[in-house]
Nucleic acid binder design. Structure first.
Lengths: 345, 345
DNA sequence: TGCTCTTATGATAGCGATAACATGGAGTGT
DNA sequence: ACACTCCATGTTATCGCTATCATAAGAGCA
């Protein structure tokens, strides 16, 4: 429990707009106008006001302002993890798009749990954001209800939900993985392995695996070499362990695709450690085009999915919906992805 | 400019506490009490209120609440970058410590610019956070003034500022790097190289370099092999390029220390690419103990600085100061670091 | 029976800003 | 000189909640 902070004895309360107004010899309203530079204030008054602001060290209280104006200036964004650079790239894209709009980001992460997402959504809605950006389309029923009730623009990203809440900015993870399979099959590989996480908490991970299997089926290639290793997100170390058991069970595997570059990198390094030549003995590909895959030795084949662009585009769409007059039609914006072939395949 | 959002024709305004009160047949004050479960409300009334809350899909407006109670429930944290996993680990530590305190994190990143930091601090102070966590001790004069004026607890992290604003949770980057130098010197290395960034924007980077030079001087070893490459943060790719020019200029270098694991990894991979044996031909060490250094081949020597702990400890100290009665004395909390010797040296 | 103490609830008055309307000069065209 | 803009400023009434004080019913006790 937070103790009564209040004003401790001797503590001077922070100056308010009224204090500034008094010092500058104008009304509070004029101060408000001067600080938002969108209305008529004489140059002379503005200068006096700014001097008073400086003197007093006055800082606007936005909570009070937004109560009155019914606009909080908040945008909420929820990503699975900040430690994953794919998602932090998206967060960066969001922040950059928000720059100079006067909107401030409330960022939260779910650790890949829809229950945590529900809690986060609730605590963020208490702050009355003007819009909200989510990762993926899997939400609890209560989360959905809260979102609908909130009557603010929502953008789901990184995925194509079958039943979107509102707008969508993303791509088909399954299709992207399938494209990678087809690209590699075209190079002559036939015996494909896959490394991913066990549970279905990570919907994007599941879709990637499904895309992997589907593409192989379409090509008439065997689909059995799938290793599910640990709870998502799969770490580098887990990737290393997974490829060992994969090659143990299916020593004739020619190429291994991984749910992300991180596990792929772990697998790649483990192979090198064991003296396997990549791609001659075993080829490896990742997903996500993390910085690491362009720099590893050998450099890794992967799929770039435009993480930053997803964030930037999602935020741009959200801003349009916030500023736009009417209900922007529900809309699905597909973002691009491309296979980046490097030395590891 | 944001258009007048207001209530568009036909749009139902969100339910307020008064609506809930009416529906439950109690006063707004009782609803407020019931929702904060800290005061006397009969079980019967609480049930009726919760039912009404559910029916209406009511969500508390914290902005209004905090205006009245003079407590916003916000804590601000500013880190250099969210894409850097060292700092996102710190952010994670902060969030985890905040869990169940009812405090919500306002996260911002500076891109290693004190000017951006100043802007961020200002926009965050507008939200009246109850405390603020910063990275490093370098701030603009105006930022310092704002922080002092704000009269809220401040914790500076990741560094030991010479003139702290308030509390500090961090370590000496220079000493940590010096320890690494001494550890490696003890193994017999004498010709040390260093890879870091050019400008002094990144104070932690500068301190690490200074620590490197100082330690060598104390050991009576040559200090000249320093490559400054690009604007911080130095990427993996830049690390790769840097080691090429370093070895070009000083081919007899035995061991190269890098400002972070990321550049060290780039350097390591580049060496392998060129057929150099690590550590036999050239040894490499990083800084920060990123996931990558434990998994690369060869595994990298580095320094673990407890990024997560820094965040968690900083947040814990901040919470104490927020909840504690009086002005906690200004305090410097040193966090530990340790050299992790692996295969690359 | 009267007194205090605990529990449960309500009425009122702000918190610090802004929306909306009102006011009063200065410039402008006819 | 008269209406008529434009500009600059002030007044008033909230926004949705909580602090604070007031009230009242029952429990426990002498």
């Amino acid at each position: 429990m937070i103790k009564s902070a209040g004003s401790k004895p001797g503590e001077i309360p922070a100056p308010t707009m009224a204090d500034v107004a008094r010092k500058a010899g104008v009304s509070a309203m004029t101060v408000s106008r001067a600080l938002r530079q969108n209305s008529y204030v004489s140059e002379e008054a503005r200068e006096r006001i700014m001097a008073a602001v400086n003197d007093l060290g006055y800082v606007l209280d936005q909570a009070a302002g937004s109560l009155s104006s019914r606009k909080t200036g908040f945008v909420a964004a929820i990503i699975p993890s900040i430690n994953n650079s794919n998602f932090s790239d998206t967060a960066r894209g969001i922040t950059d798009a928000l720059e100079n709009t006067g909107l401030q980001l409330l960022l939260g992460y779910t650790d890949y749990s829809v229950e945590r997402e529900e809690k986060l959504i609730e605590s963020m809605l208490r702050r009355r954001p003007e819009g909200i950006i989510l990762t993926g389309g899997a939400h609890t029923a209560r989360a959905r209800r809260m979102l609908e009730k909130a009557a603010i623009p929502v953008v789901e990203t990184w995925d194509i939900p079958t039943n979107p809440v509102d707008q969508v900015v993303g791509f088909s993870n399954g299709e992207a993985m399938a494209l990678l399979v087809r690209t590699l099959a075209a190079k002559g590989y036939t015996r494909f392995g896959y490394i991913g996480g066990t549970t279905s908490r990570d919907t994007r991970g599941s879709q990637r695996r499904a895309g992997f299997v589907r593409a192989l089926e379409e090509l008439g290639l065997p689909t059995g070499r799938v290793i599910s290793f640990g709870v998502p997100p799969i770490s580098m170390e887990q990737g290393a362990q997974a490829i060992v058991s994969l090659l143990d069970r299916w020593p004739d595997t020619q190429v291994v695709l991984c749910v992300s570059d991180l596990s792929a990198f772990g697998a790649l390094m483990e192979c090198r450690r064991r003296g396997l030549r990549v791609p001659e003995d075993i080829a490896i590909a990742g997903f996500g085009d993390y910085e690491i895959s362009a720099c590893s030795h050998p450099r890794m084949t992967t799929i770039n999915v435009g993480c930053y662009d997803i964030g930037q585009l999602a935020a741009t769409k959200l801003i349009e919906a916030i500023q736009g007059e009417g209900g922007t039609a529900e809309e699905i914006t597909l973002t691009g992805y491309r296979v980046i072939e490097r030395e590891s395949t």
